[in-house]
Amino acid sequence: MSIVQADSLVKKYGGIAAVDGVSFSIEKGQIFGLLGPNGAGKTTTISILSTFLEPTGGEAAVDGLSVRRQAGKVREIIGFVPQEIALYPTLTALQNLKFYGKMYGLGGALLDERCRDVLELVELWERRHDNIEKFSGGMKRRINLGAGLLHGPRFLLLDEPTVGVDPQSREHIFDTIFKIRDNGATILYTSHYMEEVELLCDHIAIMDRGKVIASGTLKELLKMLGEGGVIELEVAPPGCPAGLKEKIQGQQEVTATRSEDNKLFVSSSNSARSLPPVLKVLEQSGCQISSLELYAPSLEKLFIQLTGKELRE
């Protein structure tokens, strides 16, 4: 059962589309990852779903509520953790949480209880009376995350929540995210760190230049590269002779081929077994091989395959 539905979302600034026809759905209880380089449109997408930005086109709904027409009701059931440390540095952790809790209508004993729960969840209860400005980057990130959890949101939007934190704090944040999911919340997680998305997310959408260019579970996405990996060949002369790709495609275990300039990518369910017949076909076609690389499938390689550039560019 899907809790979030995005249909052909568009957000334009002037004539430039930051989000260009993005569609996806998120199942209840899922951790859904939006992966892409900086400027891919992840933050704009999450801003539309959180009701911060109104889309130029398309529609999105959270738990059946339109983010355009029922923004007020959507705000009551979502929690938003922005990329920035959106806290008041000269106030204590507890003062920050109490303030945000009151904004969600919490008060009295319930507010105290929720603040304690959250501070214990992010393991900063002992530091509750310290000003945020005295915290390390990782601790600030944990309180930043906690401020979005106070009212027990059904849908939590996390925008790059681990930027600039040390590995230990990152582990802390991951543990917290799993606990939140285990308590029944659905999570949308954006990141440009593929290893985070691989580790955390049940379903992943890869974004580039405002579009979703691939979507599926990790397994489904890696399958696009070939389960056994990829053979990357640099050949001369550039380009493939007519019929070469088809010949390679017909070889043992080969699942897909793609050429780009003088590079040839061969996906296979077993690269080691596919390599000898592929090399033989190339030799017979008069192609000279100047370099050869075999690698296991990964989101990074998939991104390169799909866009021709590195994820961190």
Binding site: F80, Q83, E84, Y100
Partner: peptide, 13 residues
């Protein structure tokens, strides 16, 4: 600029 106002804008306030 620091995001606190943005955070408030997506809260029910």
């Amino acid at each position: 600029d620091k995001g606190t106002m943005g955070r408030l804008m997506v809260a029910p306030v």
